[in-house]
């Protein structure tokens, strides 16, 4: 299974997201420290989930990090996150 698929599977199971977007940005970082020759090292993940409601930004990201603990000590070198509650997503013009 690809790293992206694994991220998707774990976040879907842990956070029950309404929206989940995983963008592999490894190409942008090819050749620099932490980039793996096979790619799949740098990701941007955007999540809209009910569980974020009422949590601080730090707590939201900790939830994501906890779900991806194995990947973060393994193949993922960098993970950029956007974590929104459904209401915030609506307010930002999400559909």
């Amino acid at each position: 299974m690809s790293v992206a698929d694994k991220i998707k599977e774990k976040l879907a199971a842990e956070l029950n997201p309404q929206k989940l977007t995983i963008i592999d940005e490894s190409v942008k970082h090819a050749g620099h420290a932490g980039a793996r020759p096979e790619g799949e090292s740098h990701f941007r993940v955007e999540i809209v989930a009910e569980v974020f409601d009422g949590l601080s930004r730090v707590e939201r990201q900790r939830r994501v990090y906890a779900a991806l603990a194995d990947e973060l000590t393994g193949p993922i070198h960098a993970l950029s996150l956007a974590t929104l509650s459904p209401n915030e997503d609506l307010a930002q013009g999400g559909q």
């Binding site: 930004r57 730090v58 990201q61 990090y65 000590t73 960098a78 993970l79 950029s80 956007a82």
Partner: peptide, 21 residues
């Protein structure tokens, strides 16, 4: 910090967040 990534910003002894935040 119970936070797996760098950078990390502290203000007056309190963890504020990493780059995204």
């Amino acid at each position: 910090s119970n936070w797996p990534t760098i950078p990390q910003l502290y203000v007056k002894g309190e963890f504020v967040g990493g780059c995204d935040i």
